[in-house]
Amino acid sequence: MSKQTGKRSKVRFGVYMKKYWQLYAMLSLPLLYLLIFKYVPMIYVQIAFKKYSLMESVWKLPIAANHGWEYFIKAFSMNDFKYALRNTLTLNLLDLFFGFPAPIIFALVLNELCFPRYKKIVQTIAYMPHFLSWVIIYSLALQLLAPNDGFVNMIINALGGSSIPFLNEESHWIGTYIGFGIWQNFGWGSIIYLAAIAGINPELYEAASVDGAGRFRKMWHITLPGIKPTIVVLLIMSLGNILGGGFDRPFAFQNNLVMRVADVISTFVYRVGIKGLQFSLTTAVGLFQSVIGVLFLLIANYISRKLGERGIW
């Protein structure tokens, strides 16, 4: 770059800022938010490598044993952590496998409905569960599915069957957990797909009709390809979250009988780290979780770009 252009861009920068400074002023607020709540807390990541004490400044803490890796070694030697890791992966993969297609299918179906009023009602009802907290959903589940006085099991018993252990047997519990996850989220998740569908050029459908395409042909050849970029972006983001996941849902659904399949990393961190006051250990686990999450994200992004789709950056 020549000196002249450098000078010119400086001048332009001044002019540019003068013109648009309001926009940047507005941007500063969200940036400040990110800074304070997402970046500043990262200072404390170092706790993972130090022997934590409540009373000391984080900078003055002594480095943990094994060159700071003590807590990572400890985590990987704990049975509970291995269970939690396995369960997080299993539950999240199942969620992805069954839960990811659900909103897409729902959006497609909804898009085909021809009575607008009916469509609106269905849509609203489907969104509702999203606004319920997991604690409430679990109490609903208890009322419905408890082996002794759950409504569903009472019907089954009255019809002469025997109770199905939806909540108190490991494999059934996984089904219940995944099922409620899908139920809570498919309506809300479909919004973004509906928006994407709305953006598809209607001429394409008209042209397809002229060519004699039926409902399913149009869905397959126009709607789905039309929302493919959205699907890919969301898929990448879910893959980045494969070791993450919320805390409320597993925590609300856990009970002593299913802990071996129900304990996930977030609840493990809460139980062992925060309740057990082993802050260095939990930070180590959290750091590990984030690093794996970023790796998954990068890999998914790379693959998607290789396959000719747009990545998320």
């Binding site: 540019y16 940047y24 940036l31 800074l35 500043v40 200072i43 400044s57 900078w59 003055k60």
Partner: peptide, 29 residues
């Protein structure tokens, strides 16, 4: 370029914030 400039500025700011939060936490001990 502008965006990156801004990001650099944000980074610099975060460094400052780190420094100050250090002294802050020491005082809170």
């Amino acid at each position: 370029k502008l965006v990156s400039l801004f990001l650099v500025a944000a980074m610099a700011l975060s460094m400052v914030a780190c420094g100050s939060s250090d002294s802050g936490s020491a005082a809170e001990t």
